[in-house]
Write a protein that binds this DNA or RNA. Structure first.
Length: 892
RNA sequence: GGGAGUUUAGCUCAGCUGGUUCAGAGCGCUUGCCUUACAAGCAAGAGGUCAUUGGUUCGAGCCCAAUAACUCCCACCA
């Protein structure tokens, strides 16, 4: 059989993915086995695969594949998120390109376009995930707005409303003037921006002429006194309804009871005094615009100030903007500054850097705005959600994220859940006009709403025409917080078999930036609607950055295309490269070259396969001692390393587990084991060793399979004839076992002796082909003598009792190794080397003696530690004696 | 402004309950090799004041305190 000398992923990956799908290996149904469940963090339905998804989904696939091979009923449920703002923005843009203005469409017409768009372009990302090898149960693919999930959201809203946890109120919210909707606090991104600080003159509202007294600091212009107020947003003076100063500020005590004229506007407003004002900032005087700043709003409530809203929803000035009405807020700012300056109302302008809130979805500058919105009370649910994380019922990996989580939950504010959009779950609140009042009916469907309304207001309600449903939809996260429950229909049918079997799920894998948006809220929903946690472990991935540590983004163009990477390095190579450098919670500085390492590894095991499959198996030969000890060692070694791998997995140290597996395969299996048993050129291998080797190779592929699914499946099938439908995916993961440390120690010593011989050859310029003799004085790994001869190219190996002249020596532990050499002994160099070794050994001995001479150490340290020090002493002493003897011999 | 975290080899990171010769791994680097599976490879090797300073201890990358630098989260003083 001819096997390509290089592993070619592209021809293999498609074949096996199809095979897995055809044989329904990914599909899960409840049965008697223990379940292992992961729900995918649903990517935006409009999304395209990026490196963050690659990392996140690779980790999920590793965990799910491993669980499957541990005999669990593994279920990984995929799906997408309707992402209301992002998707609506995309659809609006698409319509605009086709010359259609959203405002000319009815709600139903718009939704029709949106669904069409979703069906056609949505969910690309799920197809892309297949290229990565993701073993999702595609039969279960869900959407946060499909009928089951939609109805679940409706029921939850009604339930919470009836419990009094949802209310409607007028609040200051973060308004996105581009998307024309409120957004939650979490959706506002503060960015540093360079602007100006404008110092405006507010004249005192008085008809009297005023002559300031010397040293009062009161400014006047043409005999009229004024104060200066600093602002970054001069356009908001149109909504000013007060000016505030600190009550204890001596500069302003004279203002008490006075009024000032808003510059350019001419409105007279009162001076209020409140300790909120920071006397150090600006001029210590603050203009108050209750409609457009959250702090001003609070002061406005406190002092019962008038609220003047000067903006339209789209960020242009409304009728309160006087001559500026209809202008955009930023254009207005420019114009108003010009006008004020012309009128002599600007004292000065300074450069200023401050943080400005931007919409996460549209990047528009957020406008604080008063509006009627729906809110959810968070205090009680937050308390429960905090408890289960604090007491480790839910474990975070790494645990440091508990701090972040606690901090947010302890300072939680009510959740603004309404959005002024069409794409999303429409709020199931219906308004009814009853005797001139507006009443609200909340119900999960039109029919139910009508029934309730007719019952409650029989005189006012006769048909649906008498009900007006709220125009708003719910925040996207109001559906995704139910994800682990709604995927198994646990809201609508709380006692169904699936939810009982799969819930709570096992692991959640997500990025830390949605810990509040999503993780915390899922925990709340779990407690509220199931009385149980939604998952047991949360694994936080890092953020994928570029080499320079920058976040990957479309704008920077520093994000590689994952599909191109897969084509270049193979899915296995990319998966491995990413995992190797991504411990939990650490950001991952991505560099394409790490995929190269993954690709090289796939090629390495591919070539091990070529080697093994190229051997001729002897029908008659018996296994010799060397092969027997080689097989035994490799078995012991695997049993030992598997324990490490299991521990790594238990602690969610995936990159460690992968690195450990990598070394087991590359170093132990390829570099040592295969070289140990490799038959001489033209020779055959005995059947027993061959069979053991296939068995070991198979199990190594099982260990690697969760990380590198494709190449391992291909090799597994090439190693032996398999029945139709058989797959490594359902092979059992090998487990750690008791192992014999003595075999491992002997082999380690043999390996060190071999390395010593090779090093000696290297440093003396001897060809590897030239055989040498080897004499060992001291403890020796005799069962590995054959191996040492083979791998060290040693013609003869003997144990001796006395030192040897005319040989170069090196030490392994306390054993002296002599290689006789008639020529080429550089006496000077050897003596120097020995002198260095002696100095090190003596220094080491001195430190040991110091410890042992310390009474407090002898008394204070545990016996075991003291005994160890005594052994160190003995070893060092014998080593020193040996070195001294060698020096003496050489010096002769 | 509040909080959390990080700092160990050129790079990315391990280092568990303070105690083996503990200063590690991978990559990169240097040297020698086209050795019959693999140059996407083989063999060998060099590389670190464990951020700084003090403390606790018989003993400190590891525990404590202070300092410095960097990162993230929260708040959002006009």
């Amino acid at each position: 059989m001819a096997i390509e000398s290089k592993y070619v992923p592209s021809s293999v990956e498609e074949k096996w993915y199809k095979y897995w799908i055809d044989n329904k290996i990914f599909h899960s149904e409840p049965d008697h086995r223990q379940p292992y469940t992961i729900v995918i963090p649903p990517p935006n339905v409009t999304g395209v695969l990026h490196m963050g998804h690659m990392l996140n989904n690779t980790i999920q696939d590793v965990l799910i594949r491993r669980a499957r091979m541990m005999g669990k009923n593994a279920c990984w449920v995929p799906g997408t998120d309707h992402a209301s703002i992002a998707t609506e923005a995309k659809v609006v843009k698409m319509l605009a390109e086709r010359g259609i203005d959203k405002r000319q469409l009815s709600r139903d017409e718009f939704l029709k376009y949106a669904w069409e768009w979703k069906e056609q372009y949505g969910g690309i990302i799920l197809k892309q995930l297949r290229r990565l090898g993701a073993s999702c149960d595609w039969d279960r693919t869900a959407f946060t707005m499909d009928s089951i999930r939609y109805e679940s959201v409706m029921r939850v809203f009604v339930d919470l409303y009836n419990k009094g946890l949802i209310y409607r109120g007028v609040r200051m919210v973060n308004w996105d003037p581009k998307a024309l909707t409120a957004v939650s606090d979490e959706e506002v991104i503060y960015k540093e921006s360079h602007g100006k600080l404008f110092y405006l003159r507010y004249f005192i509202d008085t008809t009297e002429s005023y002559t300031p007294t010397e040293g009062s600091g009161i400014k006047t212009l043409d005999g009229r006194p004024y104060i200066v107020v600093a602002t970054t947003r001069p356009e908001t003076i149109l909504g000013d309804t007060a000016v505030c100063v600190h009550p204890d500020d001596p500069r302003y005590t004279w203002l008490k009871g006075k009024r000032v004229i808003v510059p350019g506007v001419g409105r007279s407003v009162q001076i209020i005094m409140d300790e909120y004002v920071d006397r150090e900032f600006g001029t210590g005087a603050l203009k108050i615009t209750p409609a457009h700043d959250i702090n001003d709003y609070n002061l406005g409530m406190k002092y019962n100030l008038e609220t003047i809203d000067i903006f339209n929803d789209n960020g242009t000035l409304n009728e309160h903007g006087a001559q500026y009405a209809g202008m955009d807020r930023f254009a207005c700012r420019k114009q108003i500054v010009k006008d004020l300056d012309a009128a002599g109302l600007i004292e000065k302008i300074e450069d200023y850097t401050n943080n400005v809130g931007h919409s996460e979805r549209t990047d528009a500058v957020i406008e604080p705005k008063l509006s009627a919105q729906w809110f959810m009370r968070m205090e009680a649910v937050a308390k429960k959600a905090l408890e289960v994380v604090e007491d480790d019922t839910i474990q975070f990996h790494p645990a440091k994220f508990k701090n972040t989580y606690r901090h947010w939950l302890e300072n939680i504010k009510d959740w603004c859940i309404s959005r002024q959009l069409w794409w999303g779950q429409r709020i199931p609140a219906y308004y009814v006009d009853v005797d001139g009042r507006t009443e609200v009916v909340v119900a999960a469907s039109d029919d139910e709403a009508l029934r309730i309304a007719m019952e409650r207001y029989p005189q006012a309600v006769h048909s649906m025409d008498d009900l007006r449903q709220d125009e708003d939809v719910l925040d996207t996260w109001f559906s995704s917080w139910l994800w682990p429950i709604s995927l198994f229909d646990g809201i609508r049918n709380p006692d169904n078999d699936e939810i009982k079997y799969y819930y709570p799920t096992d692991d959640l894998i997500t990025a830390p930036d949605i810990i509040f948006f999503w993780v915390a809220r899922m925990i709340m929903a779990g407690e509220e609607f199931r009385g149980d946690i939604p998952f047991k472990h949360v694994y936080f991935t890092g953020i994928v950055r570029d080499k320079l540590g920058r976040k990957m983004s479309k704008q920077l163009g520093n994000s590689p295309d994952p599909i191109e990477l897969i084509e270049k390095y193979g899915a296995d190579g990319v998966r491995m490269g990413m995992l190797l450098t991504a411990p939990a919670g650490n950001d991952l500085p991505f560099d394409e070259s790490i995929c190269e390492q993954g690709r090289n590894f796939a090629n390495k095991i591919w070539n091990a396969l070529r080697l093994v499959k190229g051997w001729q198996v002897s029908a008659t030969a018996q296994q010799d001692d060397d092969n027997r000890i080689s097989v035994e060692w490799m078995e012991q070694r695997m049993a030992c390393v598997l324990a490490e791998i299991e521990r790594d997995f238990n602690e969610y140290r995936l990159s460690e587990a992968l690195m450990t597996s990598y070394k087991l395969v590359w170093d132990d299996f390829c570099s040592w084991y295969l070289e140990m048993i490799k038959p001489a050129h033209g020779a055959e291998i005995d059947a027993e060793t061959y069979e053991s080797t296939l068995s070991i190779f198979e199990r190594l592929m099982c260990i690697l399979h969760p990380f590198m699914p494709f190449v391992t499946e291909e090799i597994w099938h090439t190693l032996r004839q398999r029945a139709e439908g058989e797959t490594i995916m359902l092979a059992r993961q090998p487990l750690s076992a008791m192992f014999d440390q003595r075999v491992l120690d002997s082999c380690t010593m043999a390996q060190e002796i071999i390395a010593g011989v090779r090093n000696l050859r290297n440093s003396k310029g001897l060809s590897p082909k030239e055989e040498v003799e080897l004499y060992l004085r001291g403890e020796a790994p005799s069962s590995f003598y054959g191996i040492i001869r083979k791998l060290g190219n040693v013609s003869k190996i003997e144990s001796i009792d006395s030192k040897m002249d005319g040989a170069i020596s090196f030490m392994v532990g306390t054993t002296e190794c002599f290689v006789p050499m008639s020529q080429n002994i550089d006496k000077e160099a050897e003596l120097k080397k020995l002198a260095d070794e002696l100095a090190y050994a003596e220094g080491f001995l001195a430190s040991v003696m110091k410890k042992l001479g310390n009474e407090k150490f002898i008394n204070g340290a545990p016996e075991k530690v003291v005994a160890l020090e005594r052994k160190k002493q003995a070893d060092a002493e014998s080593k020193i004696a040996a070195i001294k003897a060698q020096i003496e011999a050489l010096s002769k």
